[in-house]
Design a protein around this nucleic acid. Structure first.
Length: 888
RNA sequence: GCCCGGUUAGCUCAGCUGGUUAGAGCGCCUGGUUUACAUCCAGGAAGUCGGGGGUUCGAGUCCCUCACCGGGCACCA
């Protein structure tokens, strides 16, 4: 029967991929339904920053989430996958500032309001760009619920959380030493400081002791901060300096008298054992200063330049001041020694400027009380990390947590909901702009100009996006979310903070599972970076290889807990896989004799009536195992195993063997057989497409639509469930023997340089027990081994120098006109014998070992015995063949 | 300094709870227009699983140790 379906001969991924996304979205297939009676599964997309475009890291992250979402949806879940973007305060502000700089403008030229407007314009454009890229990836999230961290709803949640934390005493304002970026001119949190090794110097400087000729030599890496010294410190047990404690030194250049104090933070071994104390510009010194009530002198300002407190050095940049201070000290002969010194220098995560610790009035979140409960929650396994070892990292950080500086001196972000009274100067914190000061009732109020750390709003993402603080059906149903998929680099920035806020404000963890994905590197395992020039743009490779191939590559390489060495050549291999799928689909379409979808019942009927042939029984059996394995692997987030197995199954079992075997029936005269094989093929292909859909959604939808199907979309079809009763161990064993025999004949031909095009008659020598099985497979063996005729014979006849081949289920003789190279065959047999002998000896030894026989599980011993028997038999046969070879 | 991860074929990597003769892709070699597929097909070569020790009937897999390579955290001026 002719069919009217046809698909193009060549697989063109871009053409295929253009077709489906818009339709899926229009049809509303991505929508979650809070009123559904299905079980639910929820995921929030880690919101990409609106700083630019998507990179390979996003491609990986989105692919894995999409895989989960599609799989769960096909399993019958009501899936909420909630998308959105992050305003990314400092990062976005920097991007826009850089663009302004190209026009020779600064943000201060525009003013706050105008600048914010420009950033919003940028945001609109960047967001559109990013989300279209996500669509290109096949991202099946519910766009009707798209959020942005600066949305009105989310901003309300931010204010609510801030106010409540303030009410509970967990948000406070105070003057502390913070990390300051002089370029971004804002405070940043400890996490935003990145330490880089730098070759510096250690200057040994003499501080004259007051009232005598003694000097104390201090060692410092930052001589410019000496201008702000308010003490020198030694270790309380350091006998060298014990008598000086309580005295004073004269601070050079400033002629200020500062005390000599004792504090155990001093390391006696380092430098001279004397430390200059600059509470205004060093975290340790700040702590020492508090313990000893030392004054704070701020010598470096927020612009990175020396302040008026720096006297003669005022106005200099801090690096210039360093040189000048050293010069001045040298002039006074107060520099005793200069050592080379390798140390770590803190830089701003966003602009790599050296961070300046300085004292500043900022807002903080008291972290400890928030952190403790999250540790308990993870210990109780309410949230599970995959892979589990990230738990340790998480605990370590949570247990050593410091207060979180949340105010930023930026213009782009959530303005802190605090108002200062112009009269009494007190602060009023409120959800909405208050009309009066809560302290003096004054009406002249000015809002705090600082904004919040961008991670403050992302910390609320799992619930702020669902409508919190209102009670909504979404929160009710989808919180806690099922799974979070994110990178290890933001465990502290984001995951930890979501845990804190979720438990605090929702009373429950924000997600049950955190799946950590690795970094996408280049194929040599190097980090992708502009300077290395090894950055791969996902859009470019999707154009060239297709989204499906890229997704499959990412998935198969995504071993949990490891980075991903992304390889173009590997992706080319997976594009070839897609092509293989395409052609398998095409082949079946060319042979289709029935337009109805193949059902389980239909196949089961064939099965029950014993109508299926070996290949059919085998592929159905294998399919069940693959279905089961795939589901188990996905359950465990073992995406790489799942995709690997599907790849192997589809190509090297379904295509290489089943389809090859099926050709005989499909091309044959027996219509009943043809029909049955066609039905089994349709069924197996349909199931394969379903299995593969979450990995490679486009090509599978395209083919599924062409094949007989019921339902609108493969997206909505049921994900395969295995039928254990279809597992057919006998068929699997027989098929193994069959495959070995065919492969052995092929190898024999190849090794003997027999023209692959030539069809040759062959004899199979087999035992009685294999006879009927082999008889039934003669035609298939003939076709797959490229033989002209296959005869079963009881015994090998060496007449005419015919060299026998040996296989597990049968020996074979190819009947050739030409005499083949007997010597080569002798060598081959000798090699085969030696290999088999080794095998026999190994097994023999193992079985002689009474400990093995007694202690190993029965099953293991039994298989060892079987294998030994087989090997011995094989060895005999091989030896016989060798002896039978004509002498040369 | 503390903590994690890695070291398996020429390259990049799999190998879950210890149990056949350790796998994949790419690359390499030999040969192929068998009418789905040259983005293909058939066959092949190639690994003392980083070194050493231990536990076990049995170790790539568990433990200890050493070496090297990554990464994270902390940071002493």
């Amino acid at each position: 029967m002719a069919n009217n379906k046809s698909i193009s001969k060549a697989y063109d991924p871009v053409a295929v991929e253009k077709k489906w996304y818009g339709w899926w979205e229009e049809q509303g297939f991505f929508r979650a339904d809070p009123h559904s009676d299905k079980p639910h599964y929820s995921v929030v997309l880690p919101p990409p920053n609106v700083t630019g475009s998507l990179h390979m890291g996003h491609a990986l992250n989105i692919t894995l989430q999409d895989l989960i979402a599609r799989w769960k949806r096909m399993q019958g879940y009501d899936v909420l996958w909630l998308p959105g973007t992050d305003h990314a305060g400092i990062a976005t502000q920097n991007v826009v500032e850089r663009r302004l700089a190209q026009e020779g403008k600064r943000r201060t030229d525009l003013g706050r309001e105008q600048f914010e407007k420009v950033v919003w314009e940028w945001k609109e454009q960047a967001e559109g760009n990013i989300l279209n890229q996500a669509r290109r990836l096949g991202c099946s999230c519910d766009w009707s619920r798209q959020r942005f961290t600066l949305d009105e709803g989310l901003s309300r949640a931010v204010r609510e959380v801030f106010v409540r934390l303030h009410e509970d005493g967990l948000v406070y304002r105070g003057e502390y030493l913070v990390n300051w970026c002089p370029r971004c001119t804002t405070a940043i949190s400890d996490l935003e400081v990145e330490y880089q090794p730098a070759q510096g110097k250690l200057w040994h400087i003499r501080y004259p002791v007051e009232g005598g000729t003694d000097v104390l030599v201090v060692a410092t890496t930052r001589p410019e901060t000496m201008l702000g010294d308010t003490a020198v410190a030694v270790h309380p047990d350091d006998e060298r300096y014990a008598q000086l404690v309580g005295g004073t030194v004269i601070l050079p250049l400033m002629d200020r008298k500062i005390p000599i104090i004792a504090d155990s933070f001093v390391d006696r071994e380092f430098g001279t054992g004397v430390v200059k104390v600059t509470p205004g510009h060093d975290p340790n010194d700040f702590e020492v200063g508090r313990r000893h009530q030392l004054p704070i002198v701020k010598v470096i300002g927020e612009d990175g330049k020396m302040t008026q407190e720096a006297a003669d050095f005022a106005g200099m940049d801090r690096s210039e001041a360093r040189e000048k201070v050293v010069e001045a000290l040298q002039d006074l002969e107060l520099v005793e020694q200069i050592e080379e010194h390798l140390h770590n220098v803190g830089q701003c995560q966003r602009c790599e400027t050296v961070v300046e610790p300085l004292v500043s009035k900022q807002w903080f979140v008291k972290a400890k009380p928030l952190a403790e409960v999250t540790v308990e929650a993870v210990k109780a396994r309410r949230t599970v990390f995959v892979p589990e070892n990230y738990e340790r990292i998480y605990f370590e950080w949570m247990n050593n947590i410091h207060d979180w500086c949340i105010s930023r001196q930026l213009w782009w972000g959530h303005r802190i909901p605090a108002w200062y009274c112009d009269d009494c100067r007190e602060v009023t914190v409120a959800r909405e702009a208050p009309s009066r000061c809560e302290h003096c009732q004054g009406e002249a109020l000015t809002q705090e100009t600082d904004v919040l750390d961008t991670w403050f709003s992302s910390a609320l993402w799992p619930f702020s996006t669902m409508g919190w603080p209102d009670k909504t059906p979404e929160l009710d149903r989808y919180y806690p979310t099922s799974t979070l998929v994110t990178g290890f680099d933001i465990i502290f920035f984001w995951v930890a903070r979501m845990m804190m806020m979720g438990l605090r404000f929702m009373g429950d963890v924000p997600f049950h599972t955190v799946h950590i994905n690795g970094l996408v590197r280049d194929e040599k395992g190097q980090k992708m970076s502009k300077s290395r020039g090894n950055v791969i743009d996902p859009l470019e490779i999707m154009d060239e290889y297709g989204t499906d191939a890229m997704r499959f590559t990412l998935t198969i390489l995504a071993v949990p807990g490891t980075d991903i060495p992304f390889s173009i050549s590997r992706m080319a291999g997976y594009r070839a896989f897609c092509n293989k799928i395409w052609n398998a689909g095409r082949f079946l379409l060319l042979n289709l004799d029935d337009e109805t979808p193949a059902s389980v019942q239909e196949i089961d009927t064939f099965r029950e009536k014993n109508q299926l042939d070996l290949g059919e029984r085998w592929i159905l059996s294998r399919l069940q195992r693959v279905i089961s394995e795939t589901n188990i692997n996905l359950e465990k987030f073992r995406f790489h195993e799942a995709s690997n197995e599907l790849y192997h199954f589809f190509w090297h079992e379904f295509c290489d063997w089943f389809v090859e075997l099926a050709k005989r029936n499909l091309n044959g005269e027996d219509l009943e057989e043809k029909h049955r094989t066609c039905r089994v093929a349709t069924y197996a292909l349909d199931e394969s497409l379903r299995l593969l859909h979450p990995f490679i959604p486009f090509i599978t939808e395209e083919l599924w639509q062409e094949l007989p199907h019921s339902g609108d979309s493969l997206m909505l079809a049921q994900y395969p469930v295995d039928h254990p009763e279809w597992i057919d161990t006998e068929a699997e064993e027989q098929m193994d023997g069959f495959k070995e025999l065919v492969t052995d004949i092929r190898t024999f031909r190849s090794e003997n340089n027999i023209d692959p095009r030539k069809r040759i008659p062959a004899q199979l020598v087999c035992e009685k027990q294999q006879e009927s099985f082999l008889e039934s497979q003669c035609e298939q063996i003939k076709s797959l081994a490229h033989l002209s005729q296959v005869d079963l014979v009881p015994q090998f006849d060496s007449e005419g120098g015919r060299v026998p081949g040996v296989s597990r289920v049968a020996d074979f003789v190819l009947i050739l006109d030409d005499v083949i190279d007997v010597e080569a065959d002798r060598q081959r047999l000798i090699q085969q014998i030696s290999r088999t002998e080794e095998n026999v000896q190994r097994l023999h030894k193992q079985l002689q070992n009474s400990e093995f026989v007694n202690k190993a599980p029965e099953q293991v011993v039994a298989t060892a015995r079987e294998r030994q028997a087989e090997a011995v038999e094989q060895l005999g046969k091989l030896q016989e063949k060798l002896d039978g070879l004509p002498q040369s």
